[in-house]
Design a protein around this nucleic acid. Structure first.
Lengths: 210, 210
DNA sequence: TAGATTGTTAATCGATTAACAATC
DNA sequence: TAGATTGTTAATCGATTAACAATC
């Protein structure tokens, strides 16, 4: 079975769309609709489902409850995912607040920082000094962490996290971190995304002028 | 020539790495090092350069100044990119602040929101009521915008932005937005990334237990 | 039934990788 | 020279797409 990142991300998108449809009272869905809503094609949807041995009805599409059940058994129940965050500057703090009122699957349970002025161990989401990170990860069996520190510190923090037992990292720093065996890194590089957009916008603009 | 997103993103990464090397006083770089630092392979680097007709020296690698010049001519100078942001809640505000002290290529010039309490037209980065968005985009010829509104509002905002003249959008909302012809959307879905990590971490954990 | 949609196979496509001759 | 690295070609790989028979 195909198990790459893109495949899993598509499955997560499908589930997300389906959950929204369910809220609207919809009972069945066609590969065509699901493709549109997920930004892919009907072929792709059917192919993916086929790999998971999810079957539909030749004319009636896919039953939503059935889909959810199957997707959950592959993806795991969409329960809350406890996560810590290192670096509680702008992005870090935004993530913590985002966390609070958005009823998502993501639950940030603690933050860590070096700056004395940011530390607040009594907040709803406590922010501890970085020295306490290793113990916290071990005590709470944290498996996934977010890195929101400056690029110069990212690799070092990553290594410390992994040493303490973290297996997955979402990296907001603007450096490439080399994955340690048995761990996973997803990188979100906002500036790169913006620069990427400008490239395509500019190229098109030049074309149009011709 | 190859012009997909991944290709352009690699070029941007190369430039970023090279700029850092230059700061360190380094004059030439090998495809091997550049691959490592960008999270790709030496083959890929040489292939990419070959497509851009960037040449190195059979034993001496690539001259950094030469590389920067060539990359700039393809990617455009890395000057400041003026951007607006719609939705100034948590993520939006974080982006605005991030913007301030990080000397990056990204410059957020204005924010827009519907919430009266957030609006502040006199701030360093002013936040206007959403009604003023269209005029602002036209007056300042803004080409790229960030969407940081709840998913229910994302598509509508996108369409308004495009109508006003925006060509590229960075989307933080958790929905797939269908691209209007001639425009570009990059999506950053943080929750999806986290869920994606948990999937792989969990799969591995199960494997290890066996 | 006629029409629509699935499920699956084969074709396509393009990106990545490997390999190695050229050459500094 | 010997060794290292580029530049390019060909091979590989896998994901996506297209197509259509099966069937509800």
């Amino acid at each position: 079975m195909n198990t790459n990142k893109e495949f899993v991300s598509r499955l997560l998108k499908y589930r997300n769309v389906i959950m929204n449809l369910k809220k609207l009272g919809i009972v069945k869905v066609f590969s065509d609709n699901l493709g549109d809503a997920s930004g892919t094609t009907s072929s792709q949807v059917r192919k993916d489902f086929s790999q998971l041995e999810i079957t539909g009805n030749k004319r009636g599409g896919y039953n939503i409850d059935h889909l959810i059940e199957k997707l959950n058994s592959v993806l795991g129940e969409n329960t809350s995912h406890k996560v810590i965050i290192v670096g509680c500057g702008n992005i870090g703090r935004a993530m913590i607040e985002f966390n609070g009122y958005h009823n998502s699957s993501l639950e940030i349970v603690a933050g860590f920082d070096t700056s004395q002025s940011i530390i607040n161990e009594d907040a709803a989401v406590p922010v501890y000094p970085i020295e306490k990170m290793t113990d916290y990860i071990k005590e709470h069996s944290i498996k996934v962490g977010i890195i929101a520190v400056p690029e110069s510190a990212a690799t070092e923090i990553y290594e410390k996290m992994v040493e303490a037992g973290i297996k997955g990292v979402l990296n907001f720093a603007r450096v490439h971190i080399r994955e340690i065996d048995g761990t996973f890194i997803n990188t979100v590089n906002i500036e790169l995304q913006i620069e990427n957009l400008f490239y395509f916008v500019n190229v098109q603009e030049k074309k149009n002028k011709k």
